[in-house]
């Protein structure tokens, strides 16, 4: 967590440790935003007690970083976050939620709502890292106004015993979303639900889900794409099984309510082929090294070591 020191918002357990606004960016605890900025109340289901509010009013040249961490035993977190990107503004946000030690048995139930105003762009990287005893439920909601562009990557390469993620995206006309989810599970149950609503004309979305299940893990991914207008949507789910006791279920669903919309999906779940492993072994890699390389490629630029192989890192932990 070396870059957490530079975080714009840092919450450890239930306490805010750092809050650093920048020029053109308002950052407040969600509770204060709810109190001071009445319009934000429309975006919180109820008065929030934890979490952050980020309002990007001017373009910024570097990523804003948030971190919500658990460092003590049996902590329950319930952050309610709101991110607003103003019209025509481009922003990048790195969001980290994690547990800092083993056996803390924490609970993290987070909800983040993101509003991208007209012609704005957001690149958001969302990283999770948990331990065995934790329980995590994370939901995200993206609202893309006309012409807005979203690139979102969610990575969780260390899952808790139970992980539930929910992601709902609502796209107005000419907006586009590219949403990627990468999960590597060695244990536990992972349930992921995403729904993308193409509500405006020429809205477009690509959903990519990459799942790697090892040991006794079970991963289920439900991806739904709904065209309420003449948009284009694609769902792409791929899973790799690394052990006999793991399982992956992928449930893509396409609902088209407009004859001018095009929705497609592709899905595959399988194991790493022996031919591929032998090929890489003939280049001098051990079997574990070959598996590590294939998983690194499958999950793209990841930051964790897998089976003793240190994978290239671009993330913040």
């Amino acid at each position: 967590m070396k870059n957490v020191r530079k975080a714009n918002f840092l919450q450890v357990n239930n306490e805010i440790r750092r809050l650093l606004a920048e020029e053109g960016v308002i950052i407040l605890p969600s509770s204060q935003a709810y109190k001071k900025l009445k319009w934000t109340r429309d975006h919180f289901e109820q008065k929030p007690e934890e979490g952050y509010f980020i309002w990007v009013k001017k373009q910024i040249s570097h990523p804003l970083t948030t971190c919500i961490a658990i460092s003590s035993p049996k902590i329950s977190q319930n952050p309610r976050n709101l991110i607003v990107i103003e019209k025509d503004v481009k922003a990048e946000v790195h969001s980290i939620c994690n547990t800092m030690k083993k056996n803390l048995f924490g609970s993290h139930i987070g909800h983040t709502k993101v509003i991208l105003k007209e012609q704005s762009t957001l690149q958001m990287r969302h990283f999770h890292k948990w331990e065995k005893g934790d329980t995590v439920s994370s939901s995200l909601e993206f609202h893309l106004q006309k012409g807005a562009t979203l690139f979102h990557v969610y990575k969780c390469l260390a899952v808790p015993e139970k992980l539930k993620t929910e992601l709902n995206s609502f796209l107005d006309s000419s907006s586009s979303a590219n949403i990627e989810t990468d999960v590597l599970a060695k244990r536990g149950n992972v349930n992921m639900y995403d729904s993308t609503f193409l509500n405006g004309e020429e809205a477009s979305a690509i959903i990519k889900v990459r799942m790697v299940a090892d040991q006794t893990s079970k991963i289920t991914s439900h991806s739904k794409m709904i065209a309420n207008n003449a948009g284009v949507g694609h769902v792409d789910c791929m899973g790799l099984l690394l052990s006999e006791k793991s399982s992956i279920s992928t449930v893509p669903e396409l609902i088209n309510r407009n004859k001018n919309a095009t929705l497609t999906h592709e899905a595959s779940v399988g194991r790493i082929s022996q031919d591929a492993l032998n090929y890489l072994r003939s280049r001098g890699l051990t079997e574990d090294g070959a598996i590590g390389l294939i998983i690194t490629g499958f999950l793209r630029e990841t930051a964790f070591s897998y089976k003793g192989r240190v994978l290239p890192s671009k993330i913040y932990m």
Partner: peptide, 10 residues
């Protein structure tokens, strides 16, 4: 064989 996800440079 094809190795999906792994680039030749990697």
């Amino acid at each position: 064989p094809s190795i999906k996800g792994v680039t030749l440079s990697a």
